[in-house]
Design a binder for these strands. Structure first.
Lengths: 182, 182
DNA sequence: TATTGTTATACTCTATAACTATA
DNA sequence: TATAGTTATAGAGTATAACAATA
């Protein structure tokens, strides 16, 4: 269910390249570690993007294991989680919060709406906007999913001490924000 | 270029759900942090999978910025990196190392082969296997990409101290492997 | 003119089934 | 019967252009 190919999709690919430079300097056989499928992975294991991909693969499996029977995709989980604790949420705000193009959000919201989990209500102040809100059924599922996510998190983080958990979040936050505070 | 919708694609979606449980207990207005697009993100910010998604988005942008002109996608970068330091690599081994289904690897390898970056050589011992190896041109690009990855890494990690960097890798490794050593 | 939401569309990524050729 | 690689295909994720309604 999704590989660990490393980092970014979407980049173009056609032929071309700059080539030459960089000697294949100090690289001895290998150290016995850094392997998988029997291959030496020394040029990948020191890359943060590769390691987060590995961690992501593990966390995706945990998501499916814990949330699978709720029929919620990650983006759907995120939307319910946002709607559960925010009021007067417009689609524009959801796009910003999830960093998702508007057209893609539309189809996800429509899917959730057809499941009876949320409503779209045309704003009276600005009739261009729609306010998205959970139905009772949607709120129940949001709360259940939230509870499940806590259990999932406990499992994934159980390999770390409490101090390590805090540290990991803080380090990831720094990476994600490029060092900026919030 | 890719959102931060959270974790796992691929999960099914049709209707259904178990519903009910979990009270929306102690949740006060918000703390001023945990926001983006003006929305309270308290049910997401404590989830490791969400944070790694955020970090991944940042790292993907760094990948494009540093590697874009080499016309290498992440999975292509990874393949070159593996071929550069391994001998007698079969497609089966690459599939295992990258956790990628064989049919998907085939198209990527064919693309790289058509660019003149690698060769597929039928094994004499077992004629079902193909040995994949870099051409001279492929090795040059692999080495250049490796050098670029080092610069990219330095930039992404510059927000952390040397100690924090080591710690982050170790914590991610523990998450990825579920606590197992290698 | 600019913004919110929508439709249509395209390209990539991911995954599976079915086939071949070898073993 | 099993394995390495391939072909074909389907589904989900991601992205952009163009449009309608409203401001």
């Amino acid at each position: 269910m999704s590989n660990i190919a490393y980092g970014a999709p979407g980049a173009p690919c056609p032929t071309s390249m700059t080539a030459i430079e960089a000697p294949a300097a100090a690289e001895r056989p290998h150290d016995g570690k850094s392997r998988r499928g029997g291959l030496d992975r020394r040029r990948l294991d020191h890359l943060l993007g590769f390691m987060t991909s590995l961690a992501d693969a593990t966390l995706r499996k945990a998501f499916v294991a814990h949330m699978g029977d709720l029929k919620l995709r990650p983006v759907e989980f995120s939307i319910l989680a946002l709607l559960a604790v925010n009021q007067r949420v417009t689609q524009k705000k959801l796009c910003l919060a999830l960093d998702t193009p508007a057209p893609n959000l539309v189809v996800v919201l429509t899917r959730l709406q057809e499941r009876g989990l949320l409503r779209r209500i045309r704003s009276e102040e600005d009739r261009r906007e729609q306010h998205v809100e959970l139905t009772d059924e949607g709120r129940q599922l949001a709360d259940l999913a939230h509870a499940r996510s806590q259990a999932m998190e406990a499992g994934a983080l159980s390999v770390l001490t409490a101090g390590e958990q805090l540290l990991l979040f803080e380090l990831l936050r720094k990476i994600a924000t490029g060092g900026r505070p919030a």
